[in-house]
Design a protein around this nucleic acid. Structure first.
Length: 226
DNA sequence: ACCCAGGTGGCCC
DNA sequence: GGGCCACATGGG
């Protein structure tokens, strides 16, 4: 990173303000409890949230949305229940890997794991098969409620198009944000949720940028970044 | 018939 | 460090 300035800091905060003014608080993560949150984070990997909701409903209907149930269910049966989330064979294995980790190291006490510091929790999550940087950051931020900035494909594309960073890597975009923003859980929570919301609701359904709250940063008619 | 989704791991160079 | 692929359902 190393090219940060009060300029890009102000721009970044302005971008957040524009999104917040437009869309308001997003109230993420949509889950009834920490375990459902973590399950959702794994199921939503490269998958639309709509399909994840169906899979979570299936788990609830089968009374399988609990660590003991997932721990005791054979992988192929679990896969059938979460089928709608796509890549279900892979994800069934990831859910079981997560559950067995928490059972082995915390006697099944997920909140105990989530109580660690953000950096320790992140490091530990990354050792679990099927949890990569984005899923880990989601769990730290939305499950552990510690300020770990979540980057996704939308974030990287937005920062690239808006001229904040050129072809950012995951870690590059994360470090950029964490260097410029105060480590505020609420801010990080809303920032990521708003970028997702904007990218889906606005950019996809209205590709012409009509009324885009980020028009200042659009490549076509940019007015002053950099 | 494509292309994309709130990614990750494996393999390659 | 990057590029490519499989994983796979459901909606545009």
């Amino acid at each position: 990173m190393c090219r940060e300035s009060t300029h890009s800091k102000d721009q970044l905060i302005l971008l957040f303000d524009r999104l917040f003014e437009r869309y308001g608080p997003q109230h993420w993560w949509p889950a009834d409890d920490p375990f459902e949150m973590v399950v959702g984070a794994i199921l939503t990997q490269n998958t639309s949230w709509k399909n994840v909701e169906k899979a979570i409903e299936s788990l609830k209907a089968a009374e399988m949305l609990s660590m003991p149930a997932i721990g005791a269910t054979p992988p192929d049966e679990l896969a059938r229940v979460i089928r709608s989330s796509g890549c279900h064979t892979v994800k069934a294995g990831r859910l079981k890997a997560l559950v067995s980790h928490v059972e082995r190291h915390y006697d099944g006490d997920l909140p105990a794991m989530l109580r660690q510091s953000g950096s320790e929790l992140r490091r530990e999550l990354l050792t679990i098969r099927g949890i990569g940087p984005e899923t880990a950051d989601c769990i730290v931020l939305y499950g552990g409620e510690k300020p770990s900035f979540v980057v996704d494909a939308y974030t990287r594309r937005l920062f690239d198009r808006a001229g904040f960073l050129a072809r950012p890597t995951y870690d590059g975009a994360k470090e950029f944000c964490e260097a410029l923003l105060p480590p505020d859980t609420r801010l990080f929570n809303e920032f990521h949720a708003l970028i997702v919301r904007h990218s889906i609701v606005h950019c996809r359904s209205r590709p012409r940028c009509a009324g885009c709250p980020l028009a200042d940063w659009c490549p076509g008619f940019r007015s002053g970044v950099n």
